[in-house]
């Protein structure tokens, strides 16, 4: 068979897509191993199932949003309002709890409100053809602002015990992992299935790589974008339930800065910020890598600020190294 290949273009997408993912995920897995070994050397308390399990509670809420964020970024959008949506949802739960409503009502309210916020984002983005980064910077301020006006400088701290149990307890005594982490793992499986095994997932990759060709291929691009924003809002509502239950309070600064942590998880997981590539497996690995690094370093009393700096460096390296390698290989 004669194979005629045009001169390889210096395009970042020249390699078979799956080959690049495989390499990236392998690298992440290796980093995870290095991180686990390093942390266990630093502290004797690190490699303990109970400690590790408890530590997952600190990042599971963010990780749940990161799953939806990954889909959104793969499809070439982004949502910066997720932390503000948590604030709105948590506030609503606090106000309803103060009225004496029970946990089921609070949960439904948070999910519905999160969904509504996401749909609002999606509506703005698709109806008016606005860039999602601009829209969600706007709604980030809008949602947070509304929450702040209602809440003032108070804190809502009276929540029903069931909600707190959901946020703080293990799944079961024989399965001592936090409910939030279990929810994350189950959702990761669902998201991985949807992204990697269904027509819907395939369409996301098509949209992210080339939205015009996707539309020309009959993909309802705007409807799918709307769904993704709604989904991200819904996940933010879910995160709000878990977070509010865990900390047992709603304060004005709840979840501040989370949008960046969530996006970091997705990007470090190999989701291309320009859309079109990434896997849920990568995001899960990045979540564990970031979460346990933080936990390990805090065990040996590394200040929060230093940990933040480290995570920033990790993100830049994660984005930079593959590009540099590619440039070196593609050179001339």
């Amino acid at each position: 068979m004669s194979v005629i290949v045009d001169a390889p273009k210096a395009s970042p997408k020249a390699k078979p897509v799956w080959a690049r993912f495989m390499r990236w995920e392998t690298l992440l897995a290796l980093l995870c191993v290095v991180m686990m070994v390093g942390n266990s050397l630093l502290s004797p308390y690190f490699l303990d199932f109970g400690n590790l399990s408890d530590a997952t509670a600190n990042f599971s809420e963010q990780a749940i949003i990161a799953l939806a964020m990954a889909l959104l970024i793969i499809a070439r959008d982004i949502d910066l309002s997720v932390a503000s949506v948590i604030a709105v949802c948590s506030l609503a739960m606090g106000l309803l709890a103060a009225q004496g409503f029970g946990t089921p009502v609070l949960m439904v309210a948070a999910l519905a409100l999160g969904l509504a916020c996401g749909m609002f984002n999606g509506w703005l983005v698709t109806k008016f053809a606005l860039p999602s980064i601009v829209v969600t910077i706007g709604t980030m301020s809008l949602f947070r602002g509304l929450a702040d006006i209602v809440l003032g400088d108070k804190a809502l701290t009276h929540y029903p015990p069931l909600l707190q149990a959901i946020g703080q307890n293990y799944v079961a005594s024989w399965l001592p992992i936090p409910v939030s982490f279990a929810v994350f793992l189950i959702l990761a499986l669902v998201f991985a299935f949807v992204l990697h095994a269904t027509p819907f997932g395939r369409r996301l990759y098509a949209m992210g790589n080339n939205p015009v060709a996707a539309r020309f291929s009959g993909i309802p691009v705007n409807r799918i974008r709307f769904i993704l924003f709604a989904l991200t809002g819904l996940m933010s509502g879910l995160a709000a339930i878990l977070l509010t239950g865990r900390i047992g309070s709603t304060r004005p600064n709840i979840a501040t800065g989370w949008e960046l942590s969530v996006i970091t998880m997705a990007i470090l997981g190999g989701v291309s910020i320009s859309g079109g590539s990434g896997t849920i497996g990568g995001v899960v690995l990045a979540v564990l890598l970031l979460g346990f690094t933080q936990f390990g370093l805090s065990l040996v009393n590394v200040p929060e600020i230093v940990i933040n700096i480290l995570q920033g460096v990790m993100l830049i390296v994660a984005i930079g190294v593959p590009l540099l390698l590619q440039r070196l290989r593609g050179r001339r």
Partner: peptide, 12 residues
């Protein structure tokens, strides 16, 4: 720009 999705494999 409108026809092929260049990054995706042929069969997709």
């Amino acid at each position: 720009h409108e026809g092929a999705i260049l990054a995706l494999p042929i069969y997709q």
